[in-house]
Simulated assay, not measured.
Amino acid sequence: MAQITAALVKDLREKTGAGMMDAKKALVENDGNVEAAIDWLRAKGLSKAAKKADRVAADGLVAAVVSADKKTGVLVELNAETDFVARNEGFQKSLVGFAEAALATDGTSEALLAAPAVEGEGTISDQITRLIATIGENITLRRVEKLESPEGVVTNYIHGAAADGLGRIGVLVALKGDASADELAEAGRKVAMHIAATSPAAATTDELDPELVAREKQVLTEQARESGKPDNVIEKMIVGRLQKFYKEVVLVEQQFVMNPDETVAQFLASQKAELVGFKRVTLGEGIEKEESDFAAEVAAATKG
């Protein structure tokens, strides 16, 4: 039996909004497994924030760049310790250079770090080391995402822009179809804005992570059983609720934010466009950053 610590209970409460005793019971019932405990709380209707995203706990910027022929796009996330660095001209200029260099790589962070430096000698990894020495903060090239559309176009979109092509959320959308390149690019930009707002889990139902679907089905099953209805009714309830789930997390099934009367799939069809794929990167997604009490730090410092 796993030890249920106060820190573990606190973490679960922050992620779900559940009460202390409910959080502790959920962890006990699931042998300390936080993800299983979240599902348990959802099934019992005790989670007040089941869909709460991971806390964004890293600063820096995301760059979004598309090649001149609009056939290739990349997203590059460069993290730093504070948001002050994100406003640093040297940091921003370096990130744009890294993103442009990433267009010629295989789309992995390892390949980009090994690529020739944009400024100075050595590799981009060496350039980041020099940047750290100049700025005085730890800087990490965390992620690279690449998207190609040989038969169509790739469009980029930045949300929360700090500068041209730099911001907190970066999206790439690849489309092909009978429309002109400019028309596809315009349609792609609108879909990219939708993706920035809704953060779909996959482009189509078939592309959903099977583990995600299995987890959701299990939660829905437990919720349905709580109703006390017979098994044949429960089966129908699960089918209906899964369809609702797909409409929430699958891009082409979602209601289009610019026109909720149609789905994304219907919008694309009206534009004579077909979705090739998409990429979305949120700054600091999934990174936990230690939170500090600023007033306590100042008080400690004054005591010398």
Rank of each mutant, 00 (worst) to 15 (best):
A196V: 01
A162C: 11
V252W: 12
T221M: 14
L61D: 06
F278K: 07
K44L: 13
L41F: 02
K229D: 01
A265H: 07
E262K: 15
E253H: 10
A43Y: 01
E14K: 12
Q243H: 12
E14T: 12
D209S: 08
T82V: 03
L275W: 01
K247N: 15
F245S: 10
F278S: 08
G304S: 13
A295F: 02
A36G: 05
S94Q: 11
M237L: 13
N156R: 15
G19N: 06
I169A: 04
D293F: 04
V144R: 03
D231H: 04
S149V: 09
I158A: 05
T198W: 03
A196N: 07
E216W: 05
A202F: 06
G286E: 05
T155H: 10
L268S: 02
F267H: 06
L78E: 10
A80R: 04
A57W: 02
R189L: 07
K176T: 15
V118D: 04
R225N: 13
A273V: 02
R280V: 15
E248C: 10
E248I: 14
F98K: 06
P150L: 10
G45T: 12
N30Q: 11
R241D: 10
T282P: 11
K10Y: 03
E35Q: 14
I238C: 01
T123P: 07
D11F: 02
A300L: 14
E145T: 10
L275P: 12
E77N: 04
A161D: 04
V118T: 14
G97H: 00
V239D: 13
E290S: 14
A114E: 07
Q243I: 10
G19T: 11
A23H: 05
I128A: 01
R241S: 08
N88F: 02
W40H: 13
E226D: 13
L113P: 10
V66R: 10
A192T: 01
V264A: 04
V28F: 00
T16P: 04
M237Q: 10
V34H: 00
K24W: 00
A161F: 01
V264G: 05
K303S: 09
L131C: 07
G122E: 09
V173F: 01
V56Y: 03
K52I: 03
A114T: 08
L75H: 05
E226H: 09
L184G: 06
Q92G: 04
E285N: 09
D39E: 13
A201D: 11
D182G: 09
A174L: 06
M1H: 11
P260Q: 14
S227P: 06
T221K: 13
Q271K: 14
E29A: 15
F98C: 09
K48T: 04
V276K: 14
E14D: 12
A163Y: 05
Q127L: 09
S47Q: 06
S109H: 08
G97E: 04
D178I: 08
K244I: 03
K190E: 14
A295Q: 11
A49G: 15
D106W: 00
N30F: 03
A174Q: 07
E253F: 00
G19A: 09
I238H: 00
E290Y: 02
D182A: 14
V85D: 05
M193P: 08
D83E: 07
K25Q: 15
